[in-house]
Design a protein around this nucleic acid. Structure first.
Lengths: 272, 272
DNA sequence: CGCTACGTTGAGAACAATCAACCCCGGTGG
DNA sequence: CCACCGGGGTTGATTGTTCTCAACGTAGCG
């Protein structure tokens, strides 16, 4: 079942930054046909610069739930998700888990302050990632300062997201958390396809719970509650339709009274 | 009571990066005698480079509880805390507050992804800060790439801290949160003075509660509980002595059973 | 066609929030 | 110098949201 594959770049040279003479043919490079090149940090690079990046990239394939690395492991690589979804998490000694983030296509992964990863990473669903040796990428960053800026922006953005999540975890009710979570999924999906009221939830209830600081049961109950209140529709557990965008935004922001009426419903809205 | 003061640098030139001819006398520059130069991002700079930084710095003085800027305000400046302490926070429309972090001497402040601050900043106690116009600092960063690396490292570190806080907020009990909080204060104080079992808690119970996702009452009760369990001593509410370092670490990590015995005490230890 | 994962629902317990009173201390004015 | 005042802190009683334990439903897969 373990099908982790490390595919060395056909044009790579091993661990040293290639010089000009070793430039790979861009048409043969793994980045040339890359469909998400314009989304990831690669977008900071010119066609020319991209060749250097292509020379040090390899590919990793993961099955659902397979680990990419564990918390505390030496931080040797950074990654870009090219398909599927990942979760980052931290554990307490007794097994309690906090999912600190979910990653989707084009997301960057592997920022580490010290020598080791401060979190583990696992595939939520079958996933593929581009992999870069940290040392090689560092050398590239030194050569192309624009990449440093890009990475800095990335980290700043992550930080803002993390602070928003602190607000969710510290001060929002279960209903507000689930609403915030669905809006986050919707927003992030909209970066790659037109915004839709259909939100895919690829992770299971335990993942959602560990992300939002709730038990799986509370996650489930809260989905049901929002369904009964006509805020969302649930075809399958992994497929949510937002029925009232304004309402779910208000709930996420803590504006609407959380009190479900006698019928547990918000004012009904016109259905599709 | 409002004593905010913006002190323009005596050697500055306004909004443009000074050229070599305009270099300030290092002995007159505000950074020359700076006691925390070796702690802050300034440590990335040579004596020479520091002069450029000194040319664009100004000073801000705040009374306790006075705001430095509000959430959503245009992010025009970045700061370094030179005395006192600050809190960063986010608000919900109904007034619920999440303190996303506390800042102490030498901490950097003002990272913003977009045009505006994503959080507010207020003084916990009377504070002084060095202030830099964003645009001027950006120009300096372009000139001295080492600063960019320094800032990137700073952001990465902040991110790791934020993820740790997510674990606290999402998965730890009140007792574990308070223990983690005290250890955080201890660790951060130890960066500037020898590690001590005496921990200063300059912020009030409401601040602590809003940082840990607890009510002020629960914060107070939990301090009392740890005191009764001989884990800490409380001379004043703002002065905590850690009586059993190993025990408080275990509690913070969730290792020790949270169940207070009939007497509500952990095994007594030798007192000082 | 049953097994197993995951999801949902239910009942009760537990932890923290809320509402409320009181204490303690520092500052101020008589 | 002392009484009053006010804010922060503590403690108490009660409520309430979420967790835990448990059973059951459901869908995909061998």
């Amino acid at each position: 079942m373990d099908k982790t594959q490390i595919i060395p770049p056909s044009t790579g040279k091993g661990s040293r930054l290639p010089d000009a003479a070793a430039r790979p043919n861009p048409l043969l490079s793994p980045c040339g046909p890359c469909k998400i090149r314009h989304l990831a940090i690669c977008s900071a690079l010119s066609h020319d610069e991209l060749q250097y990046l292509a020379a040090i990239v390899s590919t990793v394939t993961l099955d659902a739930d397979q680990p990419l690395f564990d918390e505390g492991q030496p931080a040797q690589h950074v990654y870009i998700v090219t398909s599927g979804a990942m979760r980052l998490y931290k554990l307490l000694p007794d097994g309690r888990r906090q999912v600190t983030g979910f990653l989707f296509v084009s997301d960057f992964l592997g920022l580490a302050n010290g020598e080791n990863y401060a979190y583990g990473a696992e595939a939520v669903a079958d996933a593929e990632l581009c992999r870069f040796r940290r040392g090689e990428l560092d050398a590239l960053v030194d050569r192309f300062p624009r990449m440093e800026k890009q990475l800095f922006g990335l980290a700043s953005n992550e930080l803002a997201v993390a602070q928003e999540q602190m607000l969710v975890l510290g001060r929002k009710s279960a209903r507000e958390r689930i609403a915030s979570f669905l809006l986050m999924l919707q927003e992030r999906a909209s970066r790659r396809q037109p915004k839709s009221d259909l939100v895919a939830v690829p992770m299971n209830r335990a993942d959602v719970g560990d992300y939002l600081g709730l038990s799986t049961e509370t996650v489930s109950r809260t989905f049901t509650e929002l369904k009964l209140a006509n805020v969302i529709a649930l075809d399958k557990p992994t497929k949510v339709r937002i029925l009232n965008q304004q309402l779910i935004q208000d709930i996420a922001a803590g504006i609407r009274a959380p009190a479900p009426g006698a019928s547990g419903q918000y004012a009904p809205i016109t259905r599709h």
